[in-house]
């Protein structure tokens, strides 16, 4: 009886978040099966058209772009971030604290500021072009803005701290005596790294990949600012359909698709994490 009364205390919190997240999601789900008239008004008539349109080649392309961007962001941040995490965990306590602080600090900086920094650097009259032209390395400014690669750079830059922290937590728990054992048994540094270190830090790699992949699907402002809207991603599409295209049901269907994609990634992650024992949400 007493625990029952205490459990009741949790109701307001669960209702608060559940109501603000759950109900809107149900709304979106319902909306994704409705149609709209020519003025963009929503018509209550059940249809599967919104989902059928997903298989339109144009939209398949958008879907593919987003998937590619998120996957490449995961790979790039992994390749650059792994050594950072590994080196940091081997530093002496003082330097280690400084390194971790420098990795975490960007979290506190405005994401718009960090994206804008790349516009200043990569633009036709940007800083990198000025330096290269000034040093006579190139004659004409390089065209680096508004490409798929520009969006990739911006997205990877934004999300790399997540990857590093996830890997760091894993690398830091690594029992270094395994490495010593491997060396003693005659394995070289490379062999030890690929046969011992990488497998033992897989939970961190999976965790980091998940933490980077999910937001990479939806950060539409980066592709808007750095990609110039040339390559269309899922996030941009949803945003345009809802705010400008006046086709909210279609935007809703794509949102549901995006959520499903995230759930699939999380499912794969939780399976992998279970096998590796341990993970982000133990």
């Amino acid at each position: 009886m007493k625990t029952l009364r205490r459990n009741m205390l949790a109701i307001p919190i669960i209702v608060w978040i559940g109501l603000l997240v759950g109900t809107p999601l149900i709304f979106v789900f319902v909306l994704s099966f409705l149609s709209r008239d020519n003025l963009g008004n929503i018509v209550v008539a059940f249809t599967l058209d919104n989902y059928k349109r997903i298989f339109d080649p144009i939209y398949i392309r958008v879907f593919f772009n987003s998937f590619l961007l998120a996957t490449l962001t995961g790979l790039v941040t992994l390749l650059i971030g792994y050594p950072v995490a590994y080196i940091t965990s081997g530093l002496n306590p003082k330097r280690r604290a400084v390194s971790i602080a420098l990795i975490m600090l960007p979290f506190w900086l405005s994401s718009l500021l960090r994206t804008y920094g790349w516009i200043i650097l990569l633009g036709n009259t940007g800083i990198i072009n000025n330096i290269l032209v000034g040093l006579n390395i190139i004659e004409k400014p390089l065209n680096m803005m508004y490409k798929f690669g520009t969006t990739l750079v911006g997205t990877a830059y934004m999300l790399i701290p997540f990857m590093i922290i996830a890997i760091f937590n894993s690398v830091d728990k690594l029992d270094r005596s395994y490495l010593e054992a491997s060396y003693d048994l005659g394995a070289g540094r490379l062999k030890t790294f690929f046969n011992i270190t990488i497998p033992l830090t897989l939970p961190g790699i999976f965790g980091g990949f998940t933490l980077v992949f999910i937001p990479a699907l939806g950060l539409f402002f980066i592709s808007d600012l750095l990609g110039g809207g040339k390559t269309i991603f899922l996030g941009n599409l949803i945003n345009t359909q809802v705010t400008k295209g006046r086709n909210r049901p279609l935007g809703a269907a794509f949102s549901i698709l995006m959520i499903v994609l995230v759930l699939v990634v999380l499912f794969i992650y939780s399976r992998a994490a279970k096998r590796e024992e341990g993970g982000l949400f133990q």
């Binding site: 978040i17 603000l20 109900t23 959520i259």
Partner: peptide, 25 residues
Amino acid sequence: KTIQGVMILPLLVPEVALGISLLIF
């Protein structure tokens, strides 16, 4: 466990999807 599950929900839904679902709601 329920509280934890509910808490993690807003972090799992991509921001765009959360934004437009709130807009519609």
